[in-house]
Design a protein around this nucleic acid. Structure first.
Length: 963
RNA sequence: GCGGAUGUGGCGGAAUGGUAGACGCGCUAGCUUCAGGAGCUAGUGGGCAUUAUGCCCGUGGAGGUUCAAAUCCUCUCAUCCGCACCA
């Protein structure tokens, strides 16, 4: 008998598979449905494949193989995302051209991928840095340019001083460049931009038509950050210009007590008066030199700003309000200017407090809504504080039931012509007997709620005035309570920190009195002219509507997402195919002149002035204008890393096409990617960018489907054994190549990865699990090796049939749901069973032949090498990987008798073997005959019986009362 | 602060209303010896027992719904991820 040795069989089959081309996808196969299984292509770094790649490609490969066996025409392609910074930085250091380094790295990577036995169709492979490929990236860019979707703009870009390049917002993480961790600065540069914001709504709406996990869709929606609001114009007192602000709360317009402009706002110069010029200039200059991080860190600290010297007019009130410059206003969002409403916005509140700007409440909290025509009473909630002990007085009305009772502050209604203050004083003395106290604070707004009278067990709709009093002496007189109130509550002094009222309005009044805060939720309008009493949600639209007639406001939708900065001042990327003509401005390179080849350079270091190394290649830069043929200069910026990966999946459909990025009929045949598997780190940037490109191409009639990926899944991260992140510096990296070479082989590793945990779960790597999968494969190997030939005739073995059919069903269903780990468990269980059956059976029947072949077929997607080897040793023809996926028959899955549990009063007390189709009466009769059940039913009567066929019988009993 | 996820033995995990801990790792005992990253058999959540094997407890915590809850509901705690001065 041969021993299982992966080193003997794995390289052998890898070579045979490559030579026979069994994994090649066939264009236009009419006999089978197509299936595009896409895994994210790797960046070919010098360090090669890591365990994360390993998980992704193993999971993708298992699906690709099983789909192939299930009769699909599978396209499972692989390529390389080769442009990018690491290779270029390596070139700067070593002077080795990126082209060369990429070539070597790719070769190495491909060798590693092949040694894992992945079934990629290598005949369709390419690198994004191949001129044959980036020719089409450039061609597609020109379609954006022609459609006005690519434009140039002078923008303050995130500038990485280390990489000397501009960055997209998405590449800045916590104020640092995500790749090199350098602090990011702001720099004003003319940049190419793509109008992704035009597609913001489409990118949200399109999610409804694709199968992405909810959390991924949600994260994309949050990233786009759509918010509906209005743009409102404020006229300036001394200048003709108007300031437009963006707000999501036009209903708070009457409460706008100042205007604030971002330091980068174009009107800053004009609004600044002579007297303020010096201080404003200094402030603007300081803001400009702050890095992203410094501005972010300032968040925790005080808000800062300077007064411009001029005033604006609030269009709602006609009031003069000051115009400030403040760096908490971001130029990149909305209009770069806001109306400051301190009463209803946290940031404005903090700013107003610091600079002593007026706070005007125009929205009142509403804790319950009045019923139609309900009468309203004026009421008070008074907080009586003992300043010495720092305690407040509460009335304890006993346990809270429905809306009555519980711990409350002093409350009561206004009587007759009484004013609020005297009502409060009267209520305090009546209910508590205290007489000496002074008013400390009064809420500047009313709180709306129902008032639940404990005494009358009835409620009124009330306007609550909140007041805070400090006790000045302990003197108490007898309380004046009517009969209904007497002895219904007791007084308790509570420390301020622990005082909580069991009524939302009471609690809100208390909190606001103790520390004034803005009210940022919806409520009822007040101090807002004719809108008073309206709900803020309704007033919002009404105010915009009214102002819009005067041309002072319009509805506007704003996005957190900004247009995509598409320029990089680097060498190793696709040259942007534009020629700058003194006469015609930016002109597209003619389609037939593509690709614009990246010229070779001597030095890859970008210039410190913000231009790319390409700018130094004079003979390349100087060219002629395609329109007038006069001297002109090439664009020297290159495209970002994300460009090539935005459409690469389409190129797999027709990778060698020299006339089109892909032929129409091939695009139509392969259509959208059926399943796209990739890392969680790409669900916002890459996924959003490529969906944007695809949607644009769809609009241009260049692709047949509105979305690129029908379904997206993301594999979880594999952590180091201790649950920490794998990192080079910690030296806790698991190298897949080492595992293969150590003797376990690729099959054990693939199986261990599939078996580890649910595919989408982050989980630590346990090296010991390799021993488990290796032993399992060994058991499979030995089982098949011990079997010789089907010379024992056809002997029926029901048990064997049942085990196999059940396993086939389980594995097939699990794979459909990507339940890899449970599928592997089912295979292990199956093999355990086969050993048991074998021990009692004639191990050479034709049924065994079928069982072993089925087992190997199921194992094939997970462990392709051993499956192929055993298949051939069983005398199979061709490749196991092209054999049909085994089917199952329900009739062998059910068995005649089955074990059910008997529960008595909810506890499992016995197990019974009953016929599988036994009805309730039969099952119950069997249960009653069981001595164990009888012992529990002693002295009791069955009052209810629940039967779940094939699972359990649940009996509910009641003690029989004797005598 | 906003959004999302997760919580089950010593470990990875299984079970989506119906016998909690499948499968694997590790561990314990025994057998075996083509000494090999071996194999086989039995055991392995905690506690109390042991004449049987039985009883009690147990899925982050507290309540609830139900004949029955890891699973559904309410509250709460912890951990992780994404976003964050976004008006």
């Amino acid at each position: 008998m041969r021993r299982y040795n992966p080193k003997d069989i794995e390289p052998k089959w890898q070579k045979i598979w490559q030579e026979s081309g069994i994994y090649r996808a066939v264009d236009f196969d009419p006999s089978r449905p197509k299936y595009v299984m896409l895994t994210e292509f790797p960046y070919p770094s010098g360090s090669g494949m890591h365990i994360g790649h390993m998980r992704e490609y193993t999971l993708g490969d298992i699906i690709a193989r099983q789909k192939r066996m299930s009769g699909f025409n599978v396209l499972f392609p692989m390529g390389y995302d080769a442009f990018g910074l690491p290779t270029e930085n390596y070139a700067i250091k070593t002077k080795i051209p990126p082209q060369q380094a990429t070539e070597e790295n790719t070769k190495n990577f491909q060798q590693q991928l092949e040694s894992m036995g992945f079934s990629f169709d290598w005949s369709r492979s390419f690198k994004t840095s191949d001129p044959d490929y980036y020719k089409w990236t450039q061609w597609l860019f020109l379609r954006f340019f022609e459609a006005g979707m690519a434009y140039q703009e002078e923008v303050a870009v995130n500038w990485c001083p280390f990489c000397r390049t501009g960055l997209a917002n998405e590449e800045v993480v916590n104020g640092r460049h995500e790749r090199c961790d350098t602090l990011v600065e702001k720099k004003l540069l003319k940049q190419w931009m793509l109008r992704i914001t035009d597609y913001a709504d489409r990118l949200i709406d399109g999610l409804a038509d694709v199968d992405y996990p909810d959390w991924i869709a949600q994260q994309q929606i949050n990233w786009i950050g759509r918010s509906k609001g209005a743009e409102i114009k404020f006229s300036l007192e001394t200048i003709k210009e108007e300031v437009s602000v963006f707000t999501t709360r036009p209903d708070t317009l009457f409460g706008a007590t100042f205007i604030a402009l971002s330091p980068e706002h174009p009107l800053v110069g004009e609004v600044t008066t002579k007297e303020q010029k010096k201080v404003v200039n200094a402030y603007v200059r300081e803001a400009a030199t702050k890095t992203e991080l410094e501005r972010q860190e300032a968040e925790a600290k005080d808000k800062t700003g300077v007064f411009s010297g001029s005033f604006a007019i609030n269009p709602a009130t006609g009031d003069k309000i000051p115009v400030w410059i403040a760096d908490y206003i971001l130029m990149g969002y909305g209009t770069g200017a806001i109306m400051g409403v301190p009463a209803h916005d946290e940031r404005d509140f903090a700013f107003a407090n610091k600079y002593d700007l007026p706070i005007k409440y125009v929205i009142e909290p509403e804790f319950s809504k009045a019923k139609p025509n309900e009468k309203t009473k004026e009421a008070i909630v008074a907080v009586l504080r003992n300043p010495k002990s720092q305690e407040v007085l509460m009335l304890d009305w006993g346990p809270r039931q429905d809306s009555y009772g519980g711990k409350l502050f002093i409350g009561g209604g206004k009587e007759g012509n009484e004013d609020v203050l005297s009502a409060a004083r009267r209520e305090i003395t009546e209910e508590t007997g205290y007489t000496d106290f002074e008013l400390k604070a009064e809420l500047p707004f009313i709180v709306h709620n129902h008032f639940y009278s404990n005494v009358k067990k009835a409620d009124y709709y009330v306007h609550i005035h909140g007041l805070l009093f400090d006790l000045t002496s302990d003197q108490q007189i007898p309380t004046k309570l009517d009969a209904g109130e007497k002895n219904k509550f007791k007084l308790t002094w509570m420390p301020i920190g622990r005082a909580t009222a069991e009524d939302a309005a009471h609690q809100y009044v208390f909190d606001s009195l103790m520390s004034p805060a803005p009210y940022t939720k919806e409520g009822l309008m007040t101090q807002s002219g004719k809108y008073n009493g309206l709900s803020s949600t309704l007033a919002r639209d009404a105010i915009v509507e009214e102002l819009s007639h005067k041309g002072l406001a319009k509805e506007r939708i704003n996005y957190r997402l900004r247009d995509w900065i598409f320029s990089r001042q680097r060498y190793w990327g696709e040259p942007i195919p534009i020629i700058h003509c003194p006469k015609h401005g930016p002109v597209a390179v003619a389609d037939e002149d593509l690709p614009v080849i990246l010229p070779s350079v001597a030095d890859y270091l970008p210039s410190s002035d913000g231009s790319s190394p390409l700018a130094r290649v004079k003979e390349w830069v100087n060219t002629t204008c395609p329109l007038c043929h006069l001297p002109a200069k090439r664009e020297t910026d290159t495209m970002p890393n994300w460009a090539g990966s935005s459409w690469y999946y389409l190129r797999y459909y027709d990778p060698k096409n020299a006339h089109e990025f892909a032929a129409k009929d091939k695009l139509n045949y392969w259509g959208a990617v059926d399943l796209y598997l990739g890392g969680i780190e790409h669900i916002t940037l890459h996924l959003l960018y490529s969906r944007f490109w695809h949607q644009f191409l769809f609009d241009q009639g260049l692709v047949p489907t509105p979305e690129p990926y029908l379904a997206r899944r993301s594999q979880g991260i594999i952590q180091a054994a201790d649950g920490s992140k794998m990192s080079k510096s910690k030296g806790n990296i698991v190298d897949p190549m080492e595992v293969i070479e150590s003797g376990y082989g690729a099959d054990s590793l693939r199986l261990a990865v599939a078996f580890l945990a649910p595919y989408n779960q982050t989980t630590p790597w346990s090296p010991e699990s390799l021993g488990g999968t290796y032993r399992f494969l060994q058991r499979v190997w030995n089982l098949v090796e011990e079997y010789s030939a089907a010379d024992g005739g056809n002997i029926d073995n029901l048990k064997l049939k049942q085990v196999m059919h059940r396993t086939i069903k389980k594995v097939s269903e699990d794979l459909l749901n990507m339940g890899y780990n449970t599928a592997v468990a089912a295979l292990m269980e199956c093999v355990n069973q086969l050993y048991l059956i074998k021990a009692k059976d004639n191990f050479s029947s034709s049924e065994w032949q079928w069982a072993l072949e089925s087992l190997i077929a199921m194992l094939a997607p997970f462990a392709p090498h051993i499956a192929e080897e055993l298949y051939s040793s069983l005398g199979g023809e061709g490749s196991i990987h092209l054999q049909p996926w085994p089917g199952y028959d329900e009739k062998f899955i059910k068995s005649d008798s089955i074990t059910i549990a008997v529960q008595i009063n909810g506890k499992v007390r016995a197990q019974l073997i009953v016929p599988a189709d036994a009805d309730q009466a039969t099952a119950q009769a069997a249960a009653m005959a069981d001595p164990k059940v009888q012992s529990y039913l002693n002295q009791a009567q069955i009052i209810r019986s629940i039967y779940v066929k094939g699972k359990l019988l649940s009996l509910v009993t009641q003690k029989v009362v004797t005598n």
